[in-house]
Design a protein around this nucleic acid. Structure first.
Lengths: 105, 105
DNA sequence: TACTATGCATAGTAACACGAGGTATATCCC
DNA sequence: GGGATATACCTCGTGTTACTATGCATAGTA
């Protein structure tokens, strides 16, 4: 996979996942792998900084929780995050349709 | 428009345009603007380096020509460029469908 | 003549994902 | 018990990419 294509789309996908249910970082990595059928292999060096950035911007919130006998840092989306998600999702639609418009002349 | 989403998709779009017909840089910028209905505003600082890079990698070839009383540097796609285009186009399809799969759960 | 659009080019900058490295704990098998 | 593996968190430095800003030149227009 051309990793450069990912740029700018990671945030919207993370927000989407957290809009479904609270999740922790490592779990997100595994889930992305499964949902994308291996197309995306999010690396920890990619995902964790994004989560910290989203939290800093109040789009998500974190809380520690013990589940399955393990300490995990869960993130949940905020109201602001939900709004931002809708904006970003629309951006993706406009963007991808514009590309398809050019590639399918 | 989130400029980051562009990353990795510019090359395939340039190759597609040049697969249609030989074009010169400035003309490509105008054509992208029209075809994408303003979604893409390719800047000269973006496009010219890409054209030079593609030429260096033998994916396109350049030739100077005078048309409309102006000296223009035209680029045409090579056989190698056509093959590369098909690879990149497939990559885009896989990529965008994977994103859509996640965003449309 | 001054301004705008056309047409080429590049040096420096910012944003982003990644590779590589670190720490710690739970589970499984020998 | 001990070692390997998977889980789970984190960060620093690097490379890639598109953009900003700038420069140069010419044709058309007011």
């Amino acid at each position: 996979m051309n990793k450069e294509m990912l740029k700018g789309t990671t945030e919207v996908m993370v927000l989407k996942m957290l809009a479904q249910e609270p999740m922790y970082g490592y779990g997100l990595i595994k889930k992305f792998d499964i949902l994308s059928k291996g197309t995306f292999k999010f690396k920890e060096g990619t995902l964790y900084p994004i989560l910290h950035s989203l939290e800093k911007n109040k789009l998500i919130e974190s809380f520690w929780e013990i589940s399955d006998g393990r300490k995990r840092k869960y993130y949940k989306i905020t109201e602001l995050g939900l709004k931002q998600y809708q904006v970003k999702e629309k951006e993706w639609q406009v963007f991808s349709q514009a590309i398809n418009g050019i590639l399918e002349i």
